[in-house]
């Protein structure tokens, strides 16, 4: 009985999120366009997330390099280190880790912000002020998250590779140009393209879940906390599901 109730709740929520997503597509591309708010959200969601994404990317590249080195030495393949780290970061680790960091920072922030606006009647006030709150708050945030995450992934990958370059040079000497030549020699279009495309889907998932949770927040401050928390949990799980689907699709299309 408990299981069926949980299952029912899961299905209800999935249906609600689908309707919310449909509403985004129905309303998002009709005028009035909230360009100024979209640009403001791009600045907040993209630019202000860069330090955190950069720091985690740098540490990720450095640590990955230092962890891989002993294994590669034991196989006599230390010279393959830049290529291996490059492929791992660009294809998988960069997009997924950046998306998870993004979900933690932006998903929770959107969930809490909209949740707080809902319980303090700011969304109603917006509607009374001649503003469609769905367009102004939801469409702009979802678009900004969708557009900004791929940019953050590219920048995060670059910083991560720089961290890897420093990691290589802790125990050896490799020039900057040689390191990056080895990285880019190992990479091809089929490594960049699927990673970039799935980043758009990750960004969309984080934006739509954060907005859905915030927009449907209730029960006062407790509800706001719950919205922020569940926005992170659901969008993180969705990131892994999208990643799983992406790897299957790229495999079918021959990109792997």
């Amino acid at each position: 009985m408990a299981l069926s109730h949980t299952w029912q709740q899961f299905l209800d929520e999935t249906g609600d999120i689908s309707r919310f997503t449909r509403r985004f597509f129905l309303q998002g591309f009709k005028p009035r366009y909230e360009i100024a708010e979209l640009l403001r959200q791009c600045y907040i969601i993209g630019y202000k997330s860069l330090p955190l994404v950069g720091l985690t990317g740098f540490i990720m590249g450095l640590v990955l390099t230092m962890q891989l080195r002993p294994s590669l030495i034991s196989y006599g393949a230390e010279s393959e280190l830049p290529a291996m780290v490059g492929i791992a970061i660009v294809r998988e680790i960069g997009p997924v880790i950046t998306a998870l960091i993004f979900a933690g920072k932006i998903g929770s922030s959107i969930g809490a912000e909209l949740g707080s606006m809902k319980v303090t009647e700011q969304i109603d006030a917006m509607e009374v002020s001649g503003t469609n709150p769905f367009k102004y708050l939801v469409v702009t945030r979802v678009l900004a998250a969708t557009l900004m995450l791929p940019v953050l992934v590219i920048l995060g990958d670059a910083i991560s590779l720089y961290g890897s370059y420093l990691g290589v040079n802790i125990r050896g000497i490799t020039s900057f140009s040689l390191f990056f030549q080895q990285v880019f020699d190992a990479l091809s279009f089929s490594d960049f393209f699927p990673a970039l495309i799935k980043s758009y889907f990750f960004g969309f998932a984080v934006g739509i879940i954060g907005c859905y949770k915030g927009f449907n927040s209730s029960k006062g401050t407790e509800g706001v906390g719950r919205s922020a928390n569940s926005a992170v949990v659901v969008s993180s799980v969705l990131i892994f599901i999208i990643d799983l689907l992406a790897v299957q699709i790229t495999d079918i299309l021959g990109f792997n």
Partner: peptide
């Protein structure tokens, strides 16, 4: 029309 909300609803 104007609407004064119970929680004031000022944009934070």
């Amino acid at each position: 029309v104007g609407f004064l909300f119970q929680s004031n609803a000022l944009y934070d």
